[in-house]
Design a binder for these strands. Sequence first.
DNA 1: AATAACGTACAGTTTAAACTGTACACAACA
DNA 2: TGTTGTGTACAGTTTAAACTGTACGTTATT
Lengths: 174, 174
Amino acid sequence: MTSVNYPLLEEFQAKTVQEFSKTLEMFGLTSGDARLFIILYIHPFPMTLDDMSKASGKSKTSMSTGIRSLLEQGLVERVWVKGKRKDFYQANKNLYLSFLSSFIEKWIQQADEQKDNLERLQAEMAASNYELVEEGSAEEADLLYEKAEEMKVFHACVTEAFTKILALKEDEVN
Amino acid sequence: MTSVNYPLLEEFQAKTVQEFSKTLEMFGLTSGDARLFIILYIHPFPMTLDDMSKASGKSKTSMSTGIRSLLEQGLVERVWVKGKRKDFYQANKNLYLSFLSSFIEKWIQQADEQKDNLERLQAEMAASNYELVEEGSAEEADLLYEKAEEMKVFHACVTEAFTKILALKEDEVN
DNA sequence: AATAACGTACAGTTTAAACTGTACACAACA
DNA sequence: TGTTGTGTACAGTTTAAACTGTACGTTATT
């Protein structure tokens, strides 16, 4: 364990966590998740919930929920250590690839989901055409319909650009 | 003005705002900013603070701070309407370009700023080398130093990928 | 010059997110 | 089978963000 007492080292570690977190927050991580990831990232070997709790000064419950969140985002992995009962976790080594793919994955999932919602909304509007005319808002409703169309194009553009980036980088690795 | 009373249209507008906002939040906008942007985006012509306040059901003060935030991010522009005293605002038409460049701009600025901070931190660590050895944490401090280096690489990678995307799309426009 | 209209600072409030501690379910070990 | 160790659900609390209303400075209009 790294635990004894290294005040100077710990000061530098704290500054590092503080600093790195800002970057990760740009990728949509909450401040808490970002901090937790960094703690794992700068630690030389896998940590348990208790280790993290101690290192972050937060409760073990926080670590549990935080780790789950990071796992779901594919930024952290569980590791088995023989002879130990506790779960160990470590941060993915390749920041670029894991953050980029995590981010892009989230985007695409969100875009897919929204595409359905938008089309459902458009269908609803089309179905209500008669009532909209009655109401005298048909013209503006058409504009709104068109906006949904624009939004779908937006999704397509972003998705295309993102997957292009990802493909580019995965090639580079090979 | 669009204001009279179009309950059905307004219902669709509300749903649209609700739905679109999610997408914008993926680009780091707060829920409030996202909603405000969408309100402007789906409105057929420029709006005043009072218009927005009415459309969103939020206070005028909220609109004022929200609009300022959107202006700073380059997502919205102020428009002059002759004969009117109030300020008018409209959303940038090209979602893709404005959000992408806003996002990337923010990223690059953040990365630049952090590069300085990291180098300052590294310098500090180098300067404290002797004390770190004394403390017995020199080895782990070296690892930490190395992490800062990795983070700088990460910044460089992301910045490169982002600017590439932006360039790609700006070409496409021409 | 006086009045009215407009946008924003600021202090206070509300709302939502993050965090904690206890209590419990489950698995490992004896 | 009982006992201890481990992760997580849940309710309650703390902390931070979003929002509001009043009050004020500024600019346009008369």
